[in-house]
Simulated assay, not measured.
Amino acid sequence: MKTIVKILVGLLGLALFAGQAQAERIKDISTLQGVRSNQLAGYGIVVGLDGTGDQTTQTPFTVSSIISMLGQMGINIPAGTSLQLKNVAAVMVTADLPAFAKPGQNIDITVSSIGNAKSLRGGTLVMTPLKGADNQVYAMAQGNLLVAGAGASAGGSSVQVNQLGVGRVPAGATVERMVPTSLGQGGFINLELNSADFTTATRVVEAINRNFGPGTAVAVDGRQVRVAAPADNNQRVAFLSRVENLSVAPGEDIARVILNARTGSIVMNREVLLDTVAVAHGSLSVVISSEPLVSQPNALSQGQTVVSEQAQIEIKEKKGELVMLRAGATLGEVVKALNAVGATPQDLLAILQAIKAAGALKANLEII
C-alpha cells in the first residue's frame, strides 16, 4: 500500500508540475472553423492470405464479391459453382481525408475484417473506392497490409499476439477528389475552442488584440472567437500563422472526478479540493459453505441411502476506524487523505460519492 501511495504521489507531482507550465499556443487549444477532416469508408477484398481467409460457407458475401470482381475482369463463373476460398477475406476500409487534401496525395488507411478470417497477415488489398457521407468517391485504396501481430495453431492449440484481424497500409490510398475548404467567411475567421470556457475565450481575444490592434478579435460566446482577417488568401494564411502561434494562459479547469464503475478506476484533475471530513470504512463479508452428508444403512437393514446438505453461514465484519481527512489544497494532499482510509479502488467509488454528498468534495463526480 505504501508503495502505491509513493507512486501516486510521484505521478501527481509530475502532473502538477505540468499543470504549472507556461501558456499554451492558440493552435493547441482551438481549431479553425471549417478546417476539418472527413471520414471515408469502403468495402473491399484482401487476397493472398496463407489459408487464413474467410470460411466461404459462413460468409456468402465474400464469394459474391469475388464473383462480381472476376465478372468485371471478363471471367465468368458458371452458375452453381461452389467456390471454396481460403486465401480471401472481406474487409472494411476506413480513412480520414485531411483538410486541404488535393488529388494525387496519399493518405493512410485501416483495413478491418468483417468476416471470420483468422488473420489478414500477408494479404493484399485489391483496389477499393472510398466514399464519403455524400456517397461520392474521394479516394482509391490498394496495397499490402501491415499487421502488427502474429499467430500460429496446431493440434487444437493456438498462440496469438495482438490483433490479427486489423491492418494498416501507410499511404495506401490516393485522393481523387478534394473537399472545398474556405478559410473563414468574408472578412472574418472563427476560432473554436476545444473546451468551452469564457475565461479562455477572453484571454484569446486579449492576446490577439494586443498583437494586431483593438477590435481585431471579438468573443462570440464561451467557445467561438471571431477574428477580422485580410481578404487576400496569401495574406490570410500568413495572418493565421501568426495568430495560431500566440501564447495564451488557458482558464482553470473545472474540478472533476471521473469514476469508472466497471474497472474501479478513479481519475482526478488538479483542481479537486477536499474539506475536512471524518470517514469510517469497514467491510462486511458473508461466507456460505455447503457440505454433503451421506447416510448409508446397514447391509441387511433394507434401508435407503440418504444424501443431505449441511449449510454453514458465517458473517464477518471488519472493524472500521474513524479517520479524519484534513482539508487538502492540492491534488497530492487529497490522494494522501483518501489513501489514509485504506480502502480499495472499488471501495473508494462509494466513499467519494458519500464525501460528495456530505459537501466535503469540491468537484463534479462523473460516472462512466
Rank of each mutant, 00 (worst) to 15 (best):
Y138P: 07
Q163T: 03
N233Y: 10
T216F: 04
A217S: 04
G71V: 08
N116L: 03
N162V: 00
L12M: 13
S112D: 14
P129K: 07
I258W: 10
L146F: 06
E291D: 10
V88N: 09
A357T: 12
A99H: 02
A340V: 01
D275H: 06
K131L: 11
V63Q: 08
Q304G: 06
L284R: 15
V272D: 03
T94L: 00
L125N: 09
G359R: 02
S157K: 05
S113P: 09
G222K: 01
I75L: 15
L11D: 13
S112K: 15
S113H: 02
G34H: 09
S295M: 11
A117G: 13
V204P: 01
I351P: 01
N38E: 14
M127F: 13
R270F: 02
I107N: 11
G151A: 06
A363T: 03
G320D: 02
A340E: 15
L146Y: 06
V306Y: 03
M178Q: 06
G184K: 01
V323C: 00
V161P: 00
K102L: 14
Q296A: 08
G186L: 06
E252Y: 03
G34I: 12
Q20F: 15
G165M: 00
L14T: 13
E24H: 08
S153M: 06
L70A: 15
G222Q: 05
S295R: 10
A238H: 08
I107F: 08
V220R: 13
N38P: 03
T305F: 07
V277W: 01
S285Q: 13
V93L: 01
T200Y: 08
A340F: 02
L97K: 03
N233W: 02
A21E: 14
M69R: 13
A360V: 00
T31C: 00
M178V: 03
S157P: 00
K6C: 14
E317S: 14
N233E: 14
Q20H: 12
L365T: 02
T62S: 10
V267H: 01
L97M: 09
N339C: 14
A171L: 09
V175M: 05
S37C: 10
K102E: 15
I351L: 01
G155F: 05
V159P: 10
A255S: 07
I355L: 05
N364Q: 13
T216C: 05
V272I: 00
N194V: 02
Q163P: 00
K362H: 11
S157Y: 10
G132H: 05
G264C: 10
E192A: 10
A171P: 07
I208S: 08
V334M: 01
A201E: 09
P214H: 04
V159H: 04
K316P: 00
A101G: 13
R168P: 06
S113M: 08
G320Y: 02
N233V: 11
R236M: 02
G320R: 00
Q312K: 09
A99Q: 04
M178I: 05
D96N: 15
V307W: 03
S113Y: 02
N211Y: 10
A229M: 05
G51Q: 05
V161A: 05
E321L: 12
V111R: 06
T174D: 08
L322Q: 11
A350S: 15
G143P: 12
E317Y: 04
A238V: 08
I208N: 06
G184T: 02
R326G: 12
A148R: 11
M92S: 14
